[in-house]
Design a protein around this nucleic acid. Structure first.
Lengths: 412, 412
DNA sequence: CTCGCTCCGTTCGGAAGCCGAACGAATAGA
DNA sequence: TCTATTCGTTCGGCTTCCGAACGGAGCGAG
């Protein structure tokens, strides 16, 4: 009846589940004692001890020794994610740069590299070569076991696929990116490689690393992340999980029709959101020249020029931003209604433009989101800026280890 | 890190999981032998035997005896869902009727009752009295243990809530429906009562009972179900699961803005989809009189009048339907893009109007759904008609038993 | 300084579950 | 009647978790 078959549960499945439970408890709550883990998870102290021992041997946890002489009784010995534990490597291949990032189990950035260059001007093999070089350097520089590499691209990627279906802004079509990278960077065959959409990874970055809060003060777990780069991409996070959709194409927002606009769009239709709220469109409407390429990841790109003009009070720019915000708000309202989400995170280039985009977006949401009467809608600027996608990618690798430590144990 | 805490896994969790696995295998594949279950699930024959014995004792499974002397070797003894097993009761409280429905484990309808009457004309307590009477009769008439009762209403219901937040067409506001029903129908305190949105239940009905097929020929597990009743409600099914959203309000589609329309809407905004594609709106645009209330569940209501006029070639009606279909298609395109879904099911009143709505909807989807180049979009008429919600409700109860038999064992 | 209190982590027996292999059961065909 | 074949059960062994008891480590009172 359910389409997804599930596997039989053996005694070892128990252990896998509980290993993840313990590990997640440490990851969530910082240094904790065994006794606290037992209390929090509902497992017995005995069981926790056994699980912890396994995790210590796997070098995923480390014993900190005693922390502070704060209480009566035998002092606990705190456990934390192992500093020498596995790291994840994130890679972002974008129009103007290739970025890599190495993070440890705790999500802290260990290393970061950005190679700037207009990749559209290069042939595919040259781009692959650059990316492979960056990956090789990241792997070689990691002074710890590498749990995996996650690659983000601005394009459509099929779920679990190893193939970039299409990346219009790179001019890619059906590129077997992971296989190419594995070969060119000479990566071992058992190294875990993943591929995902850049907008999805950015949303995950804000989820895990943004430190955003729920309306109730808890960690934000339901939101729509919109990033305005060349197009308009969205990542939908529901209940702490990314919505990928059946084929992994979920989050397409850029080609929603916007009333009162007839600009033809590359997709064939007219009046797409991208033609009003895309970065290039705003730039055009503001009458600003396109900044010289390449710019490194939005930090120095059109968003900055726009923000500067807006801060100077340039009328055309302010008008363009207001119009973009309104269109964005209308389309987002539809998404929020459909998904029952009450928070929007303005990421990517939009984060920098948030001071001007936020008011019109918020206003549109307030009038158009049906459930706004019960729980107010919120518009938050992203906190990771242009790093969201790479850091999200790298973190997704270590999150994979934390939520399924058995898989890592098996390989390592 | 994940916001949702999970419970520790004990040895008994193993059994719960595997009981569900076996039960689902039987529910999916019809009568099966123990050996086949073992092969399909990956469990051992020994384990399957043990699990099956538990399920037999719980009266969830029944032994059919030998089926046919078809093969060599010891003949298998087929297992099927127990005919005398627990049943689920579904209730739908709508504007013009109260319906109940009793289904057995296999999803077959055992009993059905519709009480017609314009409930808007009645005070709340009278409506509750009618519903309670219907529930009491259904429970009394069930010649089998009742696993639970699921109630659907046309309004907003918080996830896991026992409260109807608002049901505009019934004039309800914060009605503690489940508590009222339990008291008025004198239901035992341990009987499982659930509450859900009618549109959600209808989507589940089409999922489980509609017999729709995927583009690949498998069972359809990803679609958006739109039902045009008084408003426009949607149920989103992703990977065989209903998308409820954080508060259970997901699927709101009726108030998406439609270009080129300025009709004021009850929600405060202008140009909402409901004002173009809602049943009443189509009726108005077609210039047809509103049929006399009450009508029983759309089967005799405005949809029939519209279908008749359209079949007769009435120009205004055809125009209204075309316009409604176009608007619906535009809004649905946005949803399909956002969710990465390629199938729309036209349910409720739309099912009857599918011959006229389908072409414009399909056309809009084909031009506006970005991924339509890779996998064609499909528009299917719903197959359960006005029964979808009640049958979905009743089936959701028995599905609950099948996917978590341990819970039922514990109570029974 | 020592004893008792409190809390932490470990040890050990017992129970629940699953697996693998061997065994009895039931039927068709030689 | 015997053999081949498939089905379902039985039994010993393994993994895992639980509960209770135990030893350990620090603090404070006397």
């Amino acid at each position: 009846m359910s389409p997804q078959r599930s596997a039989p549960a053996r005694p070892s499945s128990l252990r896998e589940h509980n290993l993840a439970l313990v590990l997640r408890e440490v990851a969530d709550g910082g240094p904790v004692s065994r006794a606290r883990i037992a209390a929090a998870t509902g497992l017995t102290k005995a069981t926790v001890s056994s699980l912890v021992e396994t995790l210590l041997e796997a070098r995923l946890l480390a014993e900190l020794g005693r922390s502070g002489p704060v209480a009566v009784g035998r002092p606990p010995s705190a456990l934390a994610l192992a500093p020498g534990g596995p790291v994840g490597i994130g890679v972002e291949i974008n129009v103007d740069y290739v970025a890599t990032c190495t993070v440890d189990l705790a999500g802290a950035v260990r290393h970061r590299e950005v190679v700037v260059g207009d990749l559209r001007a290069l042939p595919l093999s040259a781009v692959l070569g650059r990316a492979a070089g960056a990956v090789r350097r990241a792997v070689a520089g990691a002074a710890a076991p590498v749990a995996g590499v996650a690659v983000g691209v601005p394009g459509l990627v099929e779920t679990g696929g190893r193939l970039v279906r299409t990346a219009p802004n790179l001019g890619w079509q059906d590129v077997p990116l992971l296989a190419e990278l594995r070969e060119r960077a000479d990566l071992p065959a058992d190294l875990d490689l993943q591929l995902d959409n850049e907008a999805n990874l950015a949303a995950l970055g804000e989820l895990w690393l943004g430190g955003h809060e729920d309306a109730d003060g808890g960690p934000l777990a339901d939101f729509v992340h919109v990033s305005g780069e060349v197009g308009v991409g969205a990542g939908v996070v529901l209940n702490g999980q990314l919505l990928r959709g059946r084929h992994g194409f979920a989050g397409e927002l850029g080609h929603a029709p916007v009333a009162g606009d007839d600009t033809p769009c590359g997709c064939g239709a007219r009046g797409c959101l991208e033609q009003v709220a895309g970065q290039d469109a705003i730039l055009r409407a503001a009458g600003l020249p396109e900044p010289a390429r390449p710019w490194p990841g939005g930090d120095d790109g059109p968003a900055v020029a726009l923000a500067r003009a807006a801060a100077d009070g340039d009328g055309r720019t302010l008008g363009a931003l207001a119009k973009a915000g309104e269109a964005l708000g209308r389309v987002l309202a539809g998404a929020l209604n459909l998904l029952d989400v009450d928070t929007v995170v303005l990421g990517g280039a939009y984060a920098r433009l948030a001071p001007w985009l936020r008011p019109p977006v918020q206003a549109e949401l307030e009038t158009r989101v049906t459930a706004a009467r019960w729980r107010p809608v919120r518009v938050l600027p992203g906190r990771l800026g242009a790093d969201a996608a790479v850091r999200g990618a790298a973190t997704s690798v270590v999150r994979g280890v934390i939520t399924a430590p058995a898989g890592y144990l098996g390989r390592a």
